[in-house]
Design a protein around this nucleic acid. Structure first.
Lengths: 231, 231
DNA sequence: GCAAATTAATGATTTATTCAAG
DNA sequence: CTTGAATAAATCATTAATTTGC
């Protein structure tokens, strides 16, 4: 059982309705895990420090990372808990990510990921790779979603909805999925409790102006995908 | 079955009223798009100084990032990073890597990469991602090489230059892609001045015994691929 | 009401392709 | 042409909302 949640969509309305098309049963919203800490194991404080080297499978207590989120945020929401599970994004996190996405971000680089992760960690446990994967998946899935739509709508030769708006007045662009082009679309404002989140995303978007990011040595980091191994 | 329209918003409240329409229920897709602009959920606080960047860069938001594939015109758009060039492996490094590869390693995990990188760094500048990419590429290319050979053999039975000959006729696993299995393949001896390197690799191989690596969650590291940005 | 069974969504990996440095 | 680097497509795996049977 889950409690219900509150809101579901945030800002936004995605024009692309799938009218006509039948939509398979969409799954319910996942709603934040803002609660349901589910029986947090007794893991009383576990000194984390250790996890860098040894492998012993058993480790990786979730507790060890609580040092990450500090918390401006209220009570801890969820604790990743026991043996590592996959990231379970909270409403806020998804909201911010989508905003960035709509703002045109598609493949954030290491530095950006770092910053985003830092912000998002205020709302729940999260790692850089999660952000990375989120963008990868979201981009790919928006792409296929559009592809499906296009095919389905093979009749209507137009794809009006997603056009760019000239000198974008400002706002958040909601790109449909112009995955590659990054066309911008207009979007109306509306307030939400996530104001702050949005606020950050907003600023971040503006401040960055992706287009200018051309290189740098953001590569100083020593990151690379990890392969947990067996699959 | 699941016919349905998309969910535009609140299915939150119980399904009770689903009326006899269909038994399916719409679940709402996470909040991704399509939906309700929410309104006021209780949200956590968000602090983050907000300084606004007055200047909205005239940009082509997003475009720069993702124009990777389509652009018919291979324009370069990347200003080659001044100091950064791509990794240029040394003989020793390649030697060790190949040895590990022949030893059965295909997709080293983060920890392994770390160790390997550490070793290889003795012979030249190198980063973890280089090791990662090397394995990716080598594996893929060995695979296609073999594919070509197999196909080519269909017509003209040539003597495969580097194919295994012995007992394992076609079973050369080396290229198989026992990505997960980690089978070991024969390895022919060959001499080289890389004695030391080999020495290490050898030991490493033995010590690890890939075959047994079936799982674990060596994922403790916080790594993820980086995107130096433009490419 | 609840727990096992379903199922769409989606997080995480792997494989295939493409681009470009040398 | 070879191959390091990076991205996209395809897959695999896990989660959780919803059904369903009791």
């Amino acid at each position: 059982m889950k409690v219900h949640q509150f809101a579901r969509g945030f800002w936004e309305h995605e024009p692309s309705l799938t009218l006509g098309c039948k939509r398979l049963r969409p799954l319910a919203p996942k709603l934040s895990n803002t609660d349901t800490p589910i029986t947090t194991p007794p893991v009383t404080t576990f000194d984390l420090k250790s996890f860098i080297k040894p492998e012993s499978p058993s480790i990786k207590l979730g507790s060890s990372d609580d040092n990450k989120r500090d918390p401006p945020s209220p009570q801890a929401q969820e604790t990743h808990i026991p043996g590592g599970t996959r990231w379970n994004p909270t409403q806020e996190q998804i909201g911010i990510l989508e905003m960035l996405y709509r703002g045109g971000m598609r493949t954030p680089n290491a530095q950006q990921i770092e910053q985003i992760t830092a912000q998002l960690s205020k709302y729940g446990k999260i790692e850089g790779k999660n952000v990375f994967y989120w963008f990868q998946n979201h981009k790919a899935r928006e792409r296929q979603k559009q592809k499906r739509n296009n095919l389905g709508l093979a009749h209507s030769p137009r794809t009006p909805t997603t056009l760019v708006s000239p000198p974008f007045s400002c706002s958040v662009i909601s790109t449909l999925d112009s995955t590659k082009r990054g066309e911008i679309v207009e979007r109306e404002e509306e307030d939400s409790p996530l104001k702050k989140c949005r606020s950050w995303a907003f600023e971040y978007l503006e401040e960055q102006s992706w287009s200018s990011w051309k290189e740098e040595e953001h590569r100083t980091l020593e990151l690379f995908p990890l392969h947990p191994e067996g699959r």
